[in-house]
Design a protein around this nucleic acid. Structure first.
Lengths: 340, 340
DNA sequence: TTTCCTTTCGTGTACGTACACAAAGTAAAT
DNA sequence: ATTTACTTTGTGTACGTACACGAAAGGAAA
């Protein structure tokens, strides 16, 4: 038995007599042979290229910078192994830019795809392509539940449970017959891409269906422009219309907008809960205007997203269908221990 | 210029003319040469062995199982790279067993050490040895502040800040003139090894020095045996002696003991905060008798502990002097998203 | 038996690094 | 000029894997 024969058996290639093959397999079994990944990558000159579709961080929403950091860390770790990452950023308020990038991925020759399935209708073709070409695709941050079974994995929070958690926490802060206000502020008119926000609100509501001591109101504001004056007017109307509102749950990273309105109007007895450790939120957390922020651990999401592709393609490891990120609570007091 | 010469320059070995050396260095600079870690580990037959000193998980304290899981993950990742882990478990209520293991490390020939510096006096020799032999040493879970500068890194929580965080959280749960009770239950008489507990209590107290709306009491119970009946008697005495006690902060993983006492005595209006996702705690969290648990992320501690040694020794990377773990809050609602 | 083809198996080379050893170069001593 | 001692440089081999290529074995037809 020579190295060559063993190698053929290992890779299930043709040209080995059945008897020999069985003998080799037996020995492999006995010795519990594990291929040396190191040597394998060393000799293989195959390059892997992963496409990453992630919104461009904007001043209005710097959130995506945090993912980028995690992606960068993964990139550094596996660059030496011949794996390259190509970023295809899109404008999160412009479906066309998203569509253009998905088309690039379909036209290009990528070995794996990591994406935030922001605009769902536009995502279908991409998933079909990946499925047909057997290209692993990873959703992160936002799930696309209908097509979840067609991708390698989803990495992100369970948005509904996250909202439910927020409800539970809010219940600790309020007294009987107080009201909690769930606020959703969207940057675009059509909110089909904000699955997370909707599900968080649902989870939050669900909690208070079981815990009737506390009342619930909702506030929705969709605005593609940036007319924060109107937001202020409407929000104040609602708050002043109900003196029992003692907590506001902002279903996305715009908690700082609510905080700034309360600060400006010197309203101090309303607690604010929101999402994401972006800078404006952090500032208001430190100042005490925001009480709690829920982190989605975007850094880890980015890191694990890339690593899932790596584990699947290069290490041939099983990858879980869902990697649900922890629902992490941040206050002024433990903030400094979370880098992202 | 041959491979051999370049290699000599790279490793700063002798036998290269100054002129040649400079020429080679220049080219290395220009090409931004990065050594291929893969190939390097492949060829090097040097084996690394790390010693891990960690308490044996007991029925009374299964906490250390969680670290072990993280260590195992790291082990699996780097085993192929010729790195081996040798476990030297000790009995956490027996300083002698700890001492015996430290002596083994000193006598042995290890390339790195990961330990919980539980009994501080007994640790001195080990640290001296590591320092003299230039063996990297990592503290985790518990810090040994006086010798922190002599080791590679400390991985764990900032216990004081963690207690402070708990204080802040407690303040949300209580009303003016309520009392918070800080409870420390130790399994051994001499509590010099429980630096964490003490610091958490200090942090907790500190918070209420600034927030005077709430009163504070403390309760200490040191018992090397397992006389939980006495604990119950004493704790009930204190609780019944002060009707305003509305929250109990347990400074270590024994929150379940307090919860069981409250459950047995049908006391329902006192909230419990504690540490660590060990099974009995989790049970009481689910039942609603414990409200909040703070996780120290032991899994990550174990994983990162091993990886710090690896990064330092094999990858020659800079390692931070302190890797402070996040202070993570767990409730019934987000529990399932934390595996450890 | 020879020829030819197919199936089966062994050998050689490469990946990038580390190191032992051989070769070449240099300079002083004979 | 030759020897000797030493410095400097080049070559060969190995690590474990992947694969191309060629060698051997086997069988069928000439």
């Amino acid at each position: 038995m020579s190295i060559g024969t063993v190698d053929r058996v290992l890779h299930n290639r043709s040209g080995v007599a059945q008897a020999t093959k069985e003998k080799v397999l037996k020995v492999i079994e006995e010795l519990n042979y594990q291929p040396n990944i190191i040597a394998r990558r060393l000799v293989s000159k195959k390059k892997y290229v992963f496409a990453v579709l992630i919104p461009t961080p904007t001043e209005d929403n710097p959130y995506w910078n945090l993912h980028e950091a995690g992606i960068k860390k993964a990139e550094a770790e596996i660059l030496q192994l011949g794996i390259f990452i190509e970023r295809l950023p899109f404008n999160q308020s412009d479906p066309k830019s998203y569509f253009a990038q998905t088309k690039k991925v379909i036209a290009g020759n990528y070995d794996g795809v990591l994406l935030v399935p922001f605009f769902q209708e536009k995502t279908e073709d991409l998933i079909d392509h990946c499925k047909a070409q057997n290209i692993p695709c990873v959703f992160f941050d936002t799930n696309f539940i209908e097509r979840e079974k067609d991708v390698l994995t989803y990495i992100g929070q369970d948005a509904f449970r996250s909202g439910y958690f927020a409800g539970n926490l809010t219940s600790y802060l309020l007294s009987k017959d107080d009201t909690a206000l769930a606020v959703s502020i969207n940057a675009v008119k059509k909110a089909d891409n904000h699955v997370n926000y909707l599900q968080r609100e649902e989870g939050f509501k669900k909690y208070f269906q079981q815990d009737k001591r506390i009342k619930l109101e909702t506030f929705h504001y969709n605005n593609p422009g940036k007319d924060d004056a109107l937001l202020e007017k409407k929000l104040l109307e609602q708050i002043k219309g109900n003196e029992t509102i003692k907590a506001i749950f902002v279903t996305n990273s715009r908690a700082y907008k609510v905080a700034s309105i309360l600060e400006k109007n010197k309203i101090k007895d309303i607690k604010i809960l929101g999402y994401d450790l972006i800078d404006p939120n952090i500032q208001y957390l430190k100042k005490g205007f925001i009480d709690f922020l829920i982190s989605q651990e975007p850094f880890n999401q980015g890191y694990m997203g890339i690593m899932s592709l790596y584990n699947h393609l290069i290490l041939n490891q099983e990858v879980e269908q869902q990697k649900l990120m922890p629902i992490t609570l941040i206050t002024k007091e433990n903030l400094e221990f979370y880098k992202a």
